[in-house]
Design a protein around this nucleic acid. Sequence first.
RNA 1: GCGAUGGUGGUGAAGUGGUUAACACACCAGAUUGUGGCUCUGGCAUUUCGAGGGUUCGAUCCCCUUUCAUCGCCCCA
Length: 438
Amino acid sequence: MQVVKGTQDFMGLQARKWQAVEDVIRQITTVYGYSEIRTPIFEYTEVFKRENDSSDMVNKEMYTFDMGESSLTLRPEGTAGVVRSFVEKKIYGNPAELPAKMYYMGPMFRHERPQKGRYRQFSQFGVEVIGVKSPILDAENIALGYSLVSALGIKNITIHLNTLGDDASRDAYRVALKEHFASHLDELCEDCKRRYEQNPLRLLDCKIDADLECMKSAPKMSDYLTEESKEYFEQVKAALDALEIPYVIDDKLVRGLDYYTHTVFEAIATSDALGAQLAVFAGGRYDKLVEYFGGPAMSGVGFAAGMERLIMMAEAEGNELATDDGIDAYVMCLSNKCLTKALELTTELRASGYIADMDVQCRSMKAQFKSVDRSKAKFALILGEDELANGVVNIKHIATQEQKSVKYEDMIDHIDSYFVVENETCPTCGNPDCTCGK
RNA sequence: GCGAUGGUGGUGAAGUGGUUAACACACCAGAUUGUGGCUCUGGCAUUUCGAGGGUUCGAUCCCCUUUCAUCGCCCCA
């Protein structure tokens, strides 16, 4: 047996890297005042499969199944479930709770061809701010994402920014695009011919036709924005400028889903180690999603980031995320007559906050010392029949090779004494009563 | 969904149509009967070379199928 294609197991150091990234996410979202929302892993299919959605992929890449009552789907993304919950819980009815600032992280599922950094079960972190429409919130969202990648040590981030305007802007632009491309249809690739009918904005995304003359001469969104949309976008940019977050305007950025309105953004990282450009986080404002789920006309803004990619990029830029620091004490047990006492001592160490482990197989002393080395233990505690008879344990401080026979009841004090000495003065601030955090 | 390359112990990997599938690291045991790291000795793939089928006297090797991984395309909510 093996794991299902496109899925993977994490354990040991790898699992700790995940925990490290999750810790950073929790810390950043907390200071931004976002609280966690945990929605189900699967929902009714209609939650993800929206009518009138002209997206290319929504249908065939979802894990949809039917248990006899209704069609269910493993979530392929986080936004839909969050908005569904927001509406179902009628959060919109309590203005005091608006805007609702939420974040989520967890597994998502897409039936795609696996590649490096792209799996069928993968994890996303995302945020959603629903209930208040403000360019300040758009900027705050981007700032949060920027803080996160910075905290992970991912440098060289560029925020690509664009606006799709409001409905009126988009409608006008869509008409202009279709007029422009009508006479160039035979130059376009097959996909683009389909996009021309279904979702003209996506024409701008096409990599195949990107170099065509008619693509370069295509009308620009910025020329079709309403005054209000223009003003909104100006305020987003002004807020980002004030926060000194670097961004570039990318008028080809339209995003895959068609529920986006106004601000859309995508953070691209160029990592030499990965040798390619990769989107780190991406999102935008959506004005109609709350209504789709039966709520009032309320706007939201959010983004999502692939956690596998966050880990890959952080590592590629030299952030190890987690290291193997070893344990504090390894209790060596030399005879099965000592096993119970060894367990008692190990438990006492743990109760005092020391990371402690013990040998339960009564292996040879050599073998047990090897375990001490391998576990990078700071102390080896030796317990054999001699010690048991005398009510003592031999405590060896590995770094200094000092060894002392101490009574059981003095064990913790003896070990504590080494840490007191080590921490007498803080190496950072030199203060014995260090409060600098290290 | 399309194309390319690959799969040999715990790991990195040699290898050949024919007897016991190199080498290294790791691991285990002993030399050293209660003090590790160094050294030496020995052990460690064998109903096995991803899985299934075929050719053959004989297949890890050749052929077919399949599966997984990696890379590219597509797509990336």
